[in-house]
Design a protein around this nucleic acid. Sequence first.
DNA 1: TTATAATTAATAACCATTTTCCAATTATAT
DNA 2: ATATAATTGGAAAATGGTTATTAATTATAA
Lengths: 141, 141
Amino acid sequence: MDKKVTNLLREKGFKVTPQRLAIYKILATTKAHPSAEMIFNQLQTAYPTMSLATVYKTVDILREIGMIQVLNAGEDCFRYDADTSDHPHVRCLECGRVDDLYDINFSDFVGDVAKKTPYRLTGQQFYFYGICPECQKATVN
Amino acid sequence: MDKKVTNLLREKGFKVTPQRLAIYKILATTKAHPSAEMIFNQLQTAYPTMSLATVYKTVDILREIGMIQVLNAGEDCFRYDADTSDHPHVRCLECGRVDDLYDINFSDFVGDVAKKTPYRLTGQQFYFYGICPECQKATVN
DNA sequence: TTATAATTAATAACCATTTTCCAATTATAT
DNA sequence: ATATAATTGGAAAATGGTTATTAATTATAA
């Protein structure tokens, strides 16, 4: 799994460091779409000397080489996703978690937009908002 | 056109001021989805003493009484839209303009998501990215 | 008209994210 | 093993949209 990042980093002239691999590994093995700070916190035990600055610099590089995508779900920070495929996200307005939405067909929607807009489209982001199952249980409705 | 805002402001216990009407009028007569600063700049000639703080407070009130919606198209600021209907937006990656997308049917898409997610959905935002017609002409491709 | 509570304007302060800085360290090629 | 150029870490600083503050002003009701 690290092979691809390793090669891609080398190809693009970046050095392969344990920090970079660790940060990518976190993103590649979670579905939580962590922010820079969440990545930083998660690395505290394995890399006690990890710096937030390194996290920021690394996610920027990972985005540049196309290994991750950057999300902005209307929060005050960015989130990072090693799943670079086009897929909608849903954010819980209660606890803030962001989840993937799988097996959704939106090609008709996108096709319709592409047909009707004079823009040359290069991408899109679909964000849904609501209450996650856990928070539904927690709150009295 | 101001009638509705005027009544709604009074109903909710807010005073009706020239500033508030002017800010709403800007939003109601544009399709540019201006940010707070853009509203502020646009009012400089008509209201030279307008304060940015007033713009922020007013859009907050307008949102509270349901006369506008707030957009976050992945920028570092919010944009405001007097068209409170659910509709997708497209942002030009070159010049930054944000446009509406009309006559797009996304109810199947939304229905599919609602059926498949365990979230209780309350809303959504659809953002497309690309190059607007003007910037397509301007850049050599 | 008067009283009063809300609003405005201008600026300062905020504040959390992100970037910069630089000395120490480390990956890489030779 | 060595050279060197990139990277790291830690803290400090910047960033820039947004909010708070306060005296002066103004909308509203009586």
